[in-house]
Design a protein around this nucleic acid. Sequence first.
DNA 1: GAACAATCCCCTCTTTCGGGGGGAATTGCC
DNA 2: GGCAATTCCCCCCGAAAGAGGGGATTGTTC
Lengths: 214, 214
Amino acid sequence: METQLSPGDLDPPIRIAVIDDHPLLRDGIVAVLGTQPDLELVGTGEDGEAAVRIYREQRPDVMLLDLQMPNVDGVEAMTRILAEFPEARILVLTTYSGDGRATQAIKAGASGYLLKNSLRTELLDAIRSIHRGGTHFDRQVFGAADREAKRLTARESDVLELAAAGNSNKQIAARLSLSEDTVKGYMKAIFARLGAMDRTHAVAIAVRNGLIEL
Amino acid sequence: METQLSPGDLDPPIRIAVIDDHPLLRDGIVAVLGTQPDLELVGTGEDGEAAVRIYREQRPDVMLLDLQMPNVDGVEAMTRILAEFPEARILVLTTYSGDGRATQAIKAGASGYLLKNSLRTELLDAIRSIHRGGTHFDRQVFGAADREAKRLTARESDVLELAAAGNSNKQIAARLSLSEDTVKGYMKAIFARLGAMDRTHAVAIAVRNGLIEL
DNA sequence: GAACAATCCCCTCTTTCGGGGGGAATTGCC
DNA sequence: GGCAATTCCCCCCGAAAGAGGGGATTGTTC
């Protein structure tokens, strides 16, 4: 591949890796990328481990990374990659507009955030924007602006998960070896964080935001 | 080795329509179909209305249909199509292995059920199997076997959704113009159906089984 | 027309929840 | 060092929830 040939449109292609655990969706993205002459696919994978390995081997210009994956998840993989390659440019993909991990992903250093139900033009815009050194954060994900607060501490998650399983505060206290009052304290903190009316509402919000496992 | 007319294939291609609200996934499926000479794409759409319209216009041999879609959802679209074309062969796609609508879809007359994280070979097998008049039901979707019982009536869903939104029984009663006691009666029925300990547990179970919208 | 599911209503009783206060130890970070 | 966040604990109290009964009315299905 020659160098000095052209300005503008004959730049070297943007090298891209795609990590997602859904084969069909992965193929869809690959198909979209294939229609663009300025984009080159250099690797695909289906979990966080593959993401790290592929990044090391290929050093893609942009990595598309799903958040919800088996084994090593997206946030973890991204953290590892950025620790090793701080210049890495990662575009995070997710299914839910209210995914609680969005904030984590941003803090971990993602260059962009895109919903999976985006149009192909949005995907392409996001890739090129990020490659140019910009960012691309889907409005739907952060439009609400109150997403920041929707995060739970490990202990709060424990409490809320047990509540979701049908335990009373007393039972939760017994299970976690706490006093019932302490559990109540956590519940109060959870309501405040999530803006929930009661424990039932809190579980609904937490599930919608991917904060607890059912 | 070949018969008379067509330069290549013996049988006419299987005509397929793809309905899914995620453009990227849709493109992925289309891309997979494009690699198979015996399959022909005759239409795509992103909601239940489009599904019905495309079925009427194209009469595809097999329709791939997502369950969770805006406006008219998958089950509703399928019901309408099958009412008009009882011979229609529909392969239902879904994201979650525990989707409660799976049962509804089967009852409504789906010819097959497939998880979105299937491999492309599974998708192709399912399409061909269904076209031959067979069925294809992903084991992961129906493994649990106790899904049957996990169903709510329309009114129960209304009540539980309002509960999930943080409403008290009194508030739910006001919203639905019922007495508080009636709402309590529904809650009792919901607990019994779902095997839930309390309203919080019920919401968690209902969400996991795709019985309510958050 | 009997059986059934779904829908709706009413009562009492005890437990639980959640709001309102408060404090205190530990950690990490600037 | 200071300071914020996290984790943990305690009090009171009114309102809500849930368990236990009891019904009635529609439909549909067999």
